[in-house]
Simulated scan of single mutants.
Amino acid sequence: MHDQSWLWHKRLGHVNMDLISQLNKNELVRGLPKINFQKGKVCEACQVGKQIKNSFKTKKFISTTRPLELLHMDFFGPSRTPSLGGKSYAYVIVDDFSRYTWVLFLIQKNETFYEFSKFCNYMYKK
C-alpha cells in the first residue's frame, strides 16, 4: 500500500500527503483508492526541487573599467500579480560597473530578445 501512496503522490504532481488525504476523504478524485497517505516521509524529487542554490560570493572590487562593459541579466515570471500595465514578466539588467539597474516589464516571455535589442540600441545612441 505504501507504493500506492507514492504513486498517487507522483501522479498528482508531488502534492503533499495532507492534500491527497483531504482529496481522498472528500472523494474529489475519481479512481483514488482508499489508502493511508503517510506524513513525514520525504520524496527524493520533492527534496531536490526545494533545495536552493548557494549565492555567489560578493566581490570586493569592480572588475570592469567602464559602464556597460559587463551586464548581468535576470528574467522571471509569470508573477502572481501583474503590474499596473497588465504585464506578468520582468527582465532585469544590471550594469556591473555602476550597478545601475533597469527593469523591463513584459507581457510574454518571447518579448525578451526584442526588448534587449531596443535596450542596446538606446544605449548605443547615448
Score class of each variant (00 low, 15 high):
2 H>A: 10
4 Q>S: 12
6 W>I: 05
9 H>V: 01
11 R>G: 06
11 R>V: 12
11 R>C: 08
12 L>D: 10
12 L>P: 02
13 G>C: 03
13 G>W: 08
14 H>M: 04
14 H>D: 00
15 V>F: 06
16 N>A: 12
17 M>W: 01
17 M>P: 04
17 M>G: 01
18 D>W: 06
18 D>A: 07
19 L>D: 13
19 L>C: 03
21 S>W: 13
22 Q>V: 06
22 Q>N: 13
22 Q>A: 11
22 Q>K: 09
23 L>W: 03
23 L>T: 07
25 K>D: 07
27 E>K: 10
28 L>P: 02
29 V>F: 03
30 R>E: 08
31 G>E: 05
32 L>E: 01
33 P>Y: 08
33 P>K: 01
34 K>W: 13
34 K>E: 15
34 K>L: 15
35 I>L: 11
36 N>C: 10
38 Q>H: 13
39 K>G: 04
40 G>I: 04
41 K>E: 12
44 E>R: 15
44 E>N: 13
45 A>D: 15
47 Q>A: 14
47 Q>N: 11
49 G>S: 06
49 G>V: 00
50 K>W: 00
51 Q>K: 05
52 I>T: 03
53 K>M: 08
54 N>V: 14
55 S>D: 12
55 S>C: 08
55 S>T: 15
56 F>P: 15
56 F>I: 12
57 K>M: 15
58 T>W: 11
59 K>Q: 15
59 K>F: 14
60 K>R: 10
61 F>S: 12
61 F>I: 07
64 T>W: 04
65 T>S: 05
65 T>Y: 07
66 R>M: 11
66 R>F: 05
68 L>S: 07
68 L>D: 03
68 L>A: 04
69 E>M: 12
69 E>P: 11
70 L>N: 06
71 L>G: 06
73 M>P: 07
75 F>W: 10
75 F>I: 07
76 F>G: 14
76 F>N: 10
77 G>C: 03
78 P>N: 08
78 P>I: 02
79 S>Y: 14
79 S>K: 07
79 S>D: 10
80 R>C: 08
82 P>S: 01
83 S>Y: 01
85 G>I: 00
87 K>T: 00
87 K>Y: 06
88 S>T: 06
89 Y>P: 03
89 Y>E: 04
90 A>F: 09
90 A>C: 13
90 A>V: 14
91 Y>T: 02
92 V>I: 14
93 I>W: 14
96 D>W: 07
96 D>A: 11
100 Y>D: 08
102 W>L: 02
102 W>P: 03
103 V>Y: 12
103 V>H: 14
104 L>K: 05
105 F>H: 10
107 I>V: 06
107 I>T: 06
109 K>D: 03
111 E>T: 00
111 E>S: 01
111 E>P: 00
113 F>L: 09
114 Y>M: 02
114 Y>S: 03
114 Y>G: 01
114 Y>L: 00
116 F>G: 00
116 F>E: 00
116 F>H: 09
116 F>C: 01
116 F>R: 00
116 F>Q: 00
117 S>Y: 09
118 K>N: 02
119 F>S: 01
120 C>M: 13
122 Y>L: 12
122 Y>G: 02
123 M>G: 06
123 M>F: 15
124 Y>T: 14
124 Y>P: 04
